[in-house]
Design a protein around this nucleic acid. Sequence first.
DNA 1: ACGGTTATGGCAAATGATTTGCAATTGTGA
DNA 2: TCACAATTGCAAATCATTTGCCATAACCGT
Lengths: 166, 166
Amino acid sequence: MPRSHSHHSHSHAEDAEPFTLDGLAELLRSKGLRMTGNRRAILQALLKAKKPLGLEEIQTEAVRQSKGGEPPDFATVFRMMALLEELKIARKVNLGRASSYFELVDSRHHRDHLVCTDCGTVTPLEGNCPVESLERQIARKHGYTQVTHSLEFFGLCGDCSTDAAS
Amino acid sequence: MPRSHSHHSHSHAEDAEPFTLDGLAELLRSKGLRMTGNRRAILQALLKAKKPLGLEEIQTEAVRQSKGGEPPDFATVFRMMALLEELKIARKVNLGRASSYFELVDSRHHRDHLVCTDCGTVTPLEGNCPVESLERQIARKHGYTQVTHSLEFFGLCGDCSTDAAS
DNA sequence: ACGGTTATGGCAAATGATTTGCAATTGTGA
DNA sequence: TCACAATTGCAAATCATTTGCCATAACCGT
């Protein structure tokens, strides 16, 4: 695991560092955006997350990450996530719930999930995504560009299956 | 209009008739539910749809299908769709928009879609779904039951690609 | 066909989630 | 440090979904 040696990176957005706090900070600055305490905290929360987070969870985790202080306002988190989506740094994940959940987009991160529709448990799926390779084919066949995908499996986890049976 | 011919009133949801209006009517009745003009119109709209429909679209199409009369109330469409979801006759499709879209669930229907994130065009994908066969594997590996999936591709269609380039 | 029972539908109001306006604050480059 | 513009918190607006209530209409048995 390479340690982050943050001091002098000069990368462009395209060949940016992998998703480290410093890499992201640099990316934002290169767009004329500012790196604030709120944003740092939010990014740290997202970097640490093992599953997609809702806005409230981001708030909560952000304050934990930055160890203390006021949690960022709901609107602030909202605007930050809109921004990250715009920049393709984060994306919304469909968990079949009313509110939105987000995760960072990184080729090294898994993008597909297994969701228990009863208790809500979310499990990121390991291994190579079976669909990623289709993006290119679909793009060609339908004349699309910038094709991405969203794949989620829904079902009942072991516990909820037995509960349901009784 | 042929009278409905109930030869297998013992049928479970699983071995029900293919999705025809009569088949669905029968299914509803077997659950103690009633087949009304509204419901008939909504079901016809869904049966005819070539892509997932939003609640307003269902309203609009329903009145067209039943050729005239008042469109069903929004709440009525909403409750009907909740009911159809409950019965696994319909499902919500994630089109990356704020509001919900629905389509009937039928093994002969395609379930995966290609969505242009700019103009909103929705294209159902033909051919065998590459993921369906994984449901069983995932169920086994993670101890889940009743596993289904939701797969959508997002991108820019040809027209929107060229627009974006300019 | 009739009438009683009960699911359904329309209306409007409640809820929930997301989005925006604006003034005060704070990061950044010069 | 200063000036400028981006950012933030707060509250209010918007948008989508969901529910309560009572009048209506579907269905069953007669």
